[in-house]
Design a protein around this nucleic acid. Structure first.
Lengths: 351, 351
DNA sequence: TCATTTTGTGGAAGCGTTTGCATTCGGCAT
DNA sequence: ATGCCGAATGCAAACGCTTCCACAAAATGA
């Protein structure tokens, strides 16, 4: 292997600075003590030689790799792309590399990713997004002894960044109820993520709870599901709204994209939003502003950054704030123009 | 460092299989010759011990790291998230890791990413997305001697996956012209990507060319720009359509998201699409189907996968097909219901 | 059957850092 | 002056693989 072409190594720097390789390592990494004068000499030499440390060698020797892995189902859907964006920015800021493992290619891949790729490769820590693991799988990961932080888990006994799916769903539903709606449908996420992530059904639970609490019945045909996309929401809403027996005046959608699809479907059927139909979503998607969608905003990029923050704490052996273990990531209720009192209703307006 | 907890090493496997470490390495990596019988013994031993090779050690020793880097401006926008998704899937399929560098955090970061992070860390190759480099920067990258493949470049003398921006823009414009439109506006991408990527203006050039070729004038107020989002398109289109002097009957949008925003703006202004206004986009975005948008679909996920294919060839020292150097990634013209003859026009219909 | 390849395997020297331990070198108190 | 002590530095042993080289064994050709 030609080494001449491959840039200077630490020994060349050492020679040029007139010190030993050990000192160069200490001067550049900040570990151990080095006099100010030597440090400067070393830095100068490194600069002149265009020396860049070999992460592989460094990792091998030190056991640290300044590289964290993120396991994410896909990067093509809005929520995940935002999480990734947030995490990537935070990591680059902290000087860490980010290795991406997307598990979208079938469940077989998921397993191999977890077992082989994370087992003890070159990661200092792992962030899992929307991943549900068996106790056994989790145990295997823990055995590796590297920090794990989850987003949208939940992984038991693991610091987790997550919103309070149940409560915000109940809140969204209650908002419709408080406006006077009684016939409220719910379009939830389909099986798509159910496999890894219990989100869909938790949101439905919140909806059911709020309905029950208000003494409202939930008719079976009010429960629909859709993939997390505008097209999916459009199709589901169209079926729902075309059903004369349903007769809903409000729809709580598990995601903004679904809600936007719902609004479009309503428009196409000649229904006005919010006069004839109220629609509320969850997410804070970019599109929600354009459509005047009332929603509960959840800032996924912030969640990604928060997870990175937790990981970095863990790596410094600072235990992460109990908040991540017990609390929820904050959400924001954004009232826009897609929700109003139901048609023909004369009661108080929304708070 | 406790080694007992850290899983078996290659020597343990060697001992268990009754061979030398060298043989284990050869058996597991497929380099060098090993008898079938030994290979099986080794694989069995490795399996029983749950042995997973240390990539750091392997990379250090061999100079190969089975890890490729992808430099991408952001992952939050549709196009980029799709490219990344496509690349990530292809890489995982090939058994490579993917390290993500997003350069969205200001130009300072971009430089450090390129010089420090790629210079000779732990990457076998680099895929750059929508990145424009100076000759000097490119030269620095080349010096490293690792394969580089670009998406949407163009980086001179670098295998590049890209669509023919100019031609498809002209094609889209011509489609409107052939329907009988003469007052055709263009909403292009803003400065957003212009910095790294000349895309915005290339699409405008295609538009101008088609207009000129048809002998049509382009009025200055017909040229608008927008960020690549529905909201951006909405705002830009609203301003354009509200301008009485403009009087356009067709709009060529540089992206589907902009086009969707345009359709929404038109609706809000009481204009029917396509009866009063024809709209055409570029992208093949998920939303385009929902809105019946005529568009030129460009399959960014496929582009990501194609770039990975090229990188893998390069790594095998198979020079990549000349197609990537000279040809264009295929696009598909999808005619839907957002384009029609202009209002009051009685001519032939579209081909 | 003997010389010549080919194949399979082991020994050991790296790969480029980090770090424990030993050593040196200046003070500084005595 | 004489010790002492901490700060600064060097030495050399890892870190866990890959691969060059040598060598033995098996296969091939004459």
């Amino acid at each position: 292997m030609e080494r001449s072409a491959r840039g200077a190594g630490i020994r060349e720097v050492a020679a040029r600075a007139g010190v030993s390789a050990a000192t160069v390592s200490r001067a550049l990494s900040g570990n151990g003590r080095v006099s100010e004068k030597t440090r400067e000499k070393v830095q100068a030499a490194a600069g002149e030689l265009g020396f860049v440390i070999s992460y592989n060698a460094s990792s091998l020797a030190s056991g640290r790799s300044r590289n964290i892995g993120i396991v994410i189902p896909t990067v093509g859907r809005w929520y995940f792309s935002q999480v990734l964006e947030g995490a990537a920015s935070a990591l680059i800021e902290a000087g860490y590399d980010l290795t991406l493992y997307n598990t979208s290619d079938g469940p077989g891949h998921r397993e191999s990713v977890l077992k082989e790729m994370l087992q003890r490769k070159r990661l200092d820590a792992v962030i899992t997004v929307a991943l549900r693991l068996t106790e056994e799988e989790l145990e295997q990961l823990r055995e590796v002894g590297k920090p794990i932080v989850a987003i949208g888990g939940p992984l038991p006994d693991t610091p987790t960044v997550r919103v309070d799916e149940f409560s915000i769903s109940a809140l969204a539903t209650r908002h419709l109820i408080s406006l006077g709606h009684t016939r409220i449908a719910h379009i939830g996420g389909g099986e798509e993520l159910e496999r890894d992530f219990r989100m869909g059904s938790t949101r439905q639970d919140g909806y059911r709870s709020a309905m029950a609490e208000a003494g409202l019945a939930v008719e079976p045909q009010w429960l629909r599901s859709s993939v997390f996309s505008v097209a999916g929401g459009f199709a589901a809403a169209k079926a729902l709204l075309a059903d004369p027996a349903a007769g809903v005046t409000g729809i709580f959608c598990a995601a903004d994209e679904i809600a936007v699809g719902t609004i479009l479907a309503a428009r196409e059927l000649g229904l006005r939003v919010p006069e004839d139909l109220s629609v509320i979503g969850i997410d804070g998607h970019e599109l929600s502003a354009v459509f005047g969608l009332t929603t509960i905003s959840q800032d996924p990029a912030g969640q990604g950054a928060a997870a990175v923050g937790a990981v970095l704490s863990l790596l410094r052996n600072q235990p992460v704030g109990g908040e991540l273990l017990t609390g929820f990531y904050p959400t924001e209720f954004v009232v826009r123009s897609s929700t109003a009192v139901p048609p023909g209703f004369q009661g108080r307006t929304a708070p």
